[in-house]
Nucleic acid binder design. Structure first.
Lengths: 245, 245
DNA sequence: AGTCATTGCGAACACTGTACCCAGTCGTGT
DNA sequence: ACACGACTGGGTACAGTGTTCGCAATGACT
């Protein structure tokens, strides 16, 4: 007779008795996503969210068991609204468009790089997206195990790249400084690193990065890396899918 | 005349005047790493760390400007103690051993998957490691730009995989439940997902995962994926490095 | 020997997530 | 038609957080 040990996706949104809730899970998740995008996930507070929704802080716990559960709701909401991938022509373009959608989604919602990792909380939208991605790899003569590996490899690469790209942006935001002030603070130390002469290759990277460069250099690096990964994945297929024997 | 806008790596560990500090940055970082490994980074508190070190909570702020800066210290300490990679025979084995070291390090210090991402805080150990990895790719006729891409690609893949692997472990830990209780809580919902028939491929993945499987299945998946990535990277080299023309 | 920058740190501040309790609401069973 | 009682909203409270302030004690420099 344990109380209510049930995962949120199996809990009814509305009770059979008593007054109707004044909010929906969708409304709450949407507002929370908006706030997290604007201020960062760690600056999202239950009180702030409640105020934004025009309710008391404690009321949120009528909809959600904990902040972690709220984040599960947010993650699944984003999977529903920002991961509407369409089927690709072949496995390669399919995985490519999955990776690009994933990257675009993470750039819009940076906290998703961590919160959306793994298949821990299989909300309906998360499950549907996963199913759709797998479907693009079905019928190629690849076992479910290897299909999973292919998806996970693309996912890992994309998430990892996003993690690196976001790292700086996030560190700057957390410092409270703006971009220029942050650069000015780092400059003396970085200069010292370069001038010490102990890090010749790192120095080349730094100097290269300081040069006026392609604004979407990161995007280019991602695309190139992705193609390399896809090249590698091709070797998991039994044989050429085009041209019968 | 701003106060002390200097990055921690450029601040002297000891002041020229006044009493000697009773702690060192190394001691603090080491203790913090130990606590974060045991309880998770988000359960690491300044008060808890101070108590562990036998000092007052406010004293830590004589060594570190903020908790974020403490984490920078921790990250660099780990880079020094757990990323002592040795040079490989060729670029491929070099990147492979880097990836494996990175993976092992993250499994030992799960919080490093996020905190160690990007080259934001270039502490001495982080810089040295980075330099060492790049050195293994020098002299192959690849430009610094592409060398960086190669490292970032391996890093992204490894970090991304680690992120996925850690995701579940972390969600379980945060829930406060043990592994069995957590599985028991998820079971009814997952069963419903499968029985709904709407996710045939996802269901195959779930059923496959439930079967008694290789304990180091994740390790195997990582190794295979890594080789695929390395295969892809080979195409960035000008030509075969073995056998002169 | 004296100056005074520096250290350690108790206390306090503005927060946080969340448990508890009570008043008010409304679907349901009689 | 009515009353029961499960339910919702939410004020208050609690234990905890990162961080600041002020002050006494220390000890390296002039």
């Amino acid at each position: 007779m344990t109380s209510v040990p049930e995962v949120i996706w199996n809990r009814p949104a509305r009770a059979s008795r008593g007054p109707a809730p004044s909010l929906t899970r969708q409304e709450i998740a949407a507002a929370a996503v908006r706030l997290a995008d604007a201020e960062g996930l760690e600056d999202l507070s239950m009180r702030g969210l409640a105020a934004d929704l025009g309710v008391g802080a404690a009321s949120l716990y009528r909809y959600v068991e904990s902040k972690d559960e709220l984040i599960e709701l947010m993650a699944d909401a984003v999977m529903g609204s920002d991961m509407r991938i369409r089927a690709g022509r072949d496995w390669r373009s399919h995985l490519r468009s999955y990776a690009r959608a994933l990257r675009a989604m993470i750039q819009k919602h940076p906290w998703m790089v961590v919160e959306g990792a793994g298949r821990t909380s299989l909300g309906p939208n998360t499950a549907a997206t996963f199913e759709r991605v797998l479907r693009g790899l079905d019928g190629l003569g690849v076992g479910i195990d290897d299909m999973l590996t292919m998806v996970e490899t693309v996912d890992a690469f994309t998430r990892g790249r996003a993690l690196e790209e976001i790292g700086d942006r996030d560190a700057i935001r957390r410092s409270g400084l703006d971009n220029d002030a942050w650069m000015r603070q780092q400059a003396p130390y970085v200069r010292e690193l370069v001038e010490s002469g102990r890090y010749p290759l790192l120095s080349r990277v730094i100097i290269d990065a300081e040069a006026p460069h392609d604004p979407d250099r990161l995007e280019t690096a991602f695309r190139r890396g992705l193609e390399l990964v896809l090249d590698g994945l091709a070797s998991m297929l039994p044989e050429r899918p085009n041209r019968a024997s």
